[in-house]
């Protein structure tokens, strides 16, 4: 892959750790992302009770709905696993199918989040209403952006696989996107637990 700088005779697959450069790079990136979400989650945890004159968390959260949408997101992790498996079997049809399904589930989740935000806004929790509002929208918004980027990656990957008949390690690219996707899911589990389930 990208480490073509390595001696060509080895075709760029030998590395000191045995892990490909791209995969190691993705793991490091995700490690860094943990701290990003760590910072945002801490900010939220500090400010969750500072509602000023605005609504409190308990006023605006719709836990049954968010549980369902969390479940939808979790299911997308499952389909992502299927996509990676198909890619490793060099099954293009299966790969694109499961990637599409993953993307659709992800889009459903983001649709749910957009609904949730609109509903909360109507109930009086704007971005600038209170510290709780600012911190909540920033945290969940960052996560939503991450999911959206993931969906765009998934859909583009489908298009790339379909349109360009390029040889190469497709399985690894799918796996990389998969790593990212699982990470985003796991972060949501943490956010869902800390933000929605534990009362302020």
């Amino acid at each position: 892959m990208a480490d073509t700088a390595v001696h060509h005779a080895e075709h760029g697959h030998h590395t000191s750790t045995g892990l490909s450069n791209n995969k190691l790079g993705m793991w490091l990136f995700l490690g860094s992302e943990c701290l990003l979400f760590g910072g945002l989650i801490s900010t939220y945890m500090i400010y969750r009770g500072r509602v000023g004159e605005g609504p409190r968390p308990g006023n605006v959260f719709d836990i049954p709905f968010t549980s369902v949408s969390s479940f939808v997101l979790l299911m997308s992790s499952l389909t992502m696993v299927l996509a990676v498996a198909a890619a490793q079997k060099r099954d293009d049809r299966g790969t694109t199918l499961w990637l599409t399904v993953t993307g659709l589930l992800g889009a459903t989740f983001v649709g749910g989040q957009m609904y949730e935000f609109t509903a909360m806004y109507n109930e009086g929790l704007g971005y600038t209403t209170s510290l709780f509002g600012s911190a909540f929208y920033t945290l969940t918004g960052f996560h939503g952006v991450h999911v959206t980027v993931g969906i765009i990656m998934l859909f583009s990957l489908v298009a790339i696989i379909k349109r360009s008949n390029v040889p190469g390690d497709k399985a690894e690219v799918v796996e990389l996107v998969g790593l990212y996707w699982h990470f985003v899911d796991i972060v949501w589990i943490i956010i869902f637990t800390l933000v929605y389930l534990i009362p302020a």
Partner: peptide, 21 residues
């Protein structure tokens, strides 16, 4: 590619949230 992907995701997200509301 990015436009197709974004439009695809956007349509679902927007439509969906309108229905829910």
């Amino acid at each position: 590619f990015p436009v197709i992907a974004t439009v695809g995701a956007g349509v679902i997200v927007v439509s969906f949230s309108r229905i829910m509301l």
